[in-house]
Simulated assay, not measured.
Amino acid sequence: MSTISGRDEPGVIVLVGVRNPRLIPQGWAAVVVHRPGGRYRDSLRSYEVHLDGFLVGVVRPGRHLVVHTAPGPHRLQGRIDWCSSPVVAVNAEEGRSAHFTMEPNRGFGELVAAILWSHSTYLRLAPVFAP
């Protein structure tokens, strides 16, 4: 277990090294961020994943990131350079996993406009609901 914080205040507590969201330790919850592959835009870049304002990992195209954290309300955001996704509220439930997809919010043709004027909507971070 490690604490992620660059300040004197307590940071987000996450469990590092468990990559399977089905192996959630007792008393923990999982937040899983999926990033689809096969898209040209940002295909050579990793997206940062921030939980409660702290960097908890990166996700590359075609991969996913599993973050085990304490149950309860959290704030999730994706970032790349000075651009980001809107902050998404997550209610992490003990023993359960919450899944999200992170991808470019617009097509390749709108890339310049997204970088210059829409910094906080460059990425789309959307919940994935189980059927």
Rank of each mutant, 00 (worst) to 15 (best):
M1F: 12
S2P: 14
S2M: 11
T3N: 11
I4M: 09
I4H: 11
S5C: 10
R7Y: 10
D8G: 15
D8M: 14
E9W: 09
E9Y: 07
P10G: 09
G11K: 06
V12I: 13
I13R: 09
I13H: 12
V14K: 05
L15Y: 15
L15T: 04
L15N: 06
V16I: 15
V18L: 15
V18W: 04
N20D: 15
N20V: 05
R22H: 13
R22K: 15
R22A: 15
L23V: 04
I24R: 01
P25F: 05
P25G: 08
P25N: 06
Q26E: 14
G27P: 03
G27F: 11
W28M: 12
W28D: 00
V31W: 02
V32K: 11
V32I: 10
V32A: 07
V32M: 12
H34V: 05
R35W: 10
P36I: 13
G37T: 10
G37H: 14
R39F: 11
Y40C: 13
Y40P: 07
R41I: 14
D42P: 02
D42K: 12
D42R: 11
D42W: 14
S43Q: 14
R45I: 06
R45Q: 12
S46N: 14
Y47W: 06
E48M: 14
V49I: 12
D52G: 02
F54L: 13
F54K: 12
L55R: 13
L55D: 08
G57R: 08
V58Y: 09
R60W: 14
R60G: 06
R60K: 10
H64F: 14
L65E: 10
L65W: 06
L65A: 07
V66A: 07
V66L: 05
V66H: 06
V67Y: 07
T69A: 04
T69E: 00
T69V: 10
T69K: 01
T69N: 00
P73G: 13
H74T: 02
H74P: 02
L76P: 00
L76T: 01
L76E: 04
G78M: 05
R79L: 07
I80W: 15
D81E: 13
W82S: 07
W82I: 05
S84P: 01
S84N: 01
P86M: 07
P86I: 06
P86S: 10
V87G: 03
V87N: 03
V87A: 11
V87L: 03
V90M: 06
V90E: 02
N91Y: 13
A92N: 02
A92T: 01
E94F: 00
G95H: 04
R96E: 05
R96V: 04
R96I: 00
A98H: 09
H99V: 07
H99R: 08
H99F: 07
F100V: 06
T101R: 12
M102P: 00
E103D: 05
N105L: 02
R106G: 04
G109P: 01
L111W: 15
V112D: 09
A113K: 15
A114M: 08
L116A: 05
L116C: 01
W117Y: 14
W117N: 09
S118Q: 11
H119Y: 04
T121I: 03
T121Y: 03
L123Q: 01
L123N: 00
R124G: 02
R124H: 05
L125W: 05
A126R: 09
V128N: 09
V128D: 10
F129V: 15
A130T: 05
A130F: 04
P131A: 12
P131L: 02
